[in-house]
């Protein structure tokens, strides 16, 4: 069984959106869950958090950034291509309930998984305050979509090219120190950002969740490769998570484990780019030309 790509475009440089024809996955999907895909027979299995889904239309949207060989290859696919595997929905859905005021924080490509949460929290009757950040305004995604699902929207850019000049954590801190009671914070983005959010919220008594995306193979609890330390206990992010209490996650261990295959990834990217550049290498099979 293969999966058709219904739509594909580059949202901002190196960040791509892909709509996949997967009716059964779309029907079962809930905010906070993820999928695992494999491009072809020799491909690796990579987890990606679901960015959007439509049960009636039967599609699931993923948004990914070009990082390693697999995401670079994925970026080159078009609607003429198919994915070999698209498994999901995996992981525990977010526990969306009416709490009052919820702050949603998305950094970089992490805005993508925050979007369905914003929609779900809003639908459940919460006041949604969103903070979305990127290195620069050219790299900011889903601004209009997030604005539509938020009661308040803050934008931050590292270089000050749009919105607040600085980091999402500075807005989080401002809100925490403000008068309005905050009932929950959900932060998704690069590990460094999530670790920084965990640091900022530490002195406050506000439930804060992060969505972890460690290295995975099967995504069903079988390999244990995605294990993370939460409150001193080993958890499997794929079945126990991906969301955990930010204040209890051992981010240093998680970030170190994320780097385990960095040398192999670098070799694979180099070999892949060389192959794409060579005239005979891929024979045009990868559609890069």
């Amino acid at each position: 069984m293969t999966y058709n790509i219904l739509e594909k475009y580059e949202m901002v440089p190196t960040v791509h959106l892909m709509k996949i024809d997967a009716p059964d996955v779309a029907k079962a999907a809930k905010a906070g869950q993820f999928i695992i895909l494999r491009i072809d027979e020799t491909g690796e299995r990579i987890p990606l958090t679901i960015a959007d889904f439509d049960a009636a239309e039967g599609y699931v949207t993923i948004i990914f950034q070009e990082m390693g060989k697999t995401t670079k290859h994925l970026a080159k696919l078009t609607t003429d291509d198919k994915l070999q595997d698209f498994v999901g929905p995996l992981g525990q859905p977010s526990e969306i309930e009416k709490l009052g005021t919820v702050v949603l924080v998305g950094g970089g490509v992490g805005v993508a998984p925050i979007y369905p949460q914003a929609r779900a929290y809003r639908k459940a009757g919460n006041k949604v305050i969103s903070i979305i950040g990127a290195r620069s305004k050219d790299l900011l995604i889903l601004e209009d979509e997030m604005r539509a699902q938020s009661d308040e929207l803050y934008i931050t850019t590292d270089d000050g090219s749009k919105g607040h000049h600085g980091f999402v954590t500075q807005i989080v801190l401002k809100l925490l120190e403000g008068d309005e009671a905050i009932d929950r914070i959900v932060a998704i983005g690069p590990p460094v950002m999530m670790r920084a959010v965990a640091g900022v919220v530490a002195p406050f008594d506000v439930e804060t969740l992060v969505s972890l995306n460690p290295v995975m193979v099967d995504g069903t609890g079988m390999c244990g490769g995605c294990r993370v330390l939460v409150d001193g206990k080993t958890k499997f992010a794929c079945v126990d998570g991906p969301e955990f209490d930010a204040r209890k996650v051992d981010f240093n261990l998680m970030m170190s484990r994320l780097g385990l295959y960095r040398p192999e990834e670098a070799d694979a990217v180099e070999a892949y780019e060389k192959e794409c550049e060579s005239e005979t290498g891929c024979g045009g099979g990868c559609t890069c030309q």
Partner: peptide, 27 residues
């Protein structure tokens, strides 16, 4: 880092064919 469950080690090798890395993408 470097501690594997046998399941993960064997799955990488057998199912994902990591012994043929980089022809197969799984390291």
């Amino acid at each position: 880092n470097g501690v594997y469950s046998a399941n993960e080690f064997l799955t990488r090798v057998n199912l994902m064919k990591a012994y043929q890395f980089p022809e197969y993408d799984t390291p």
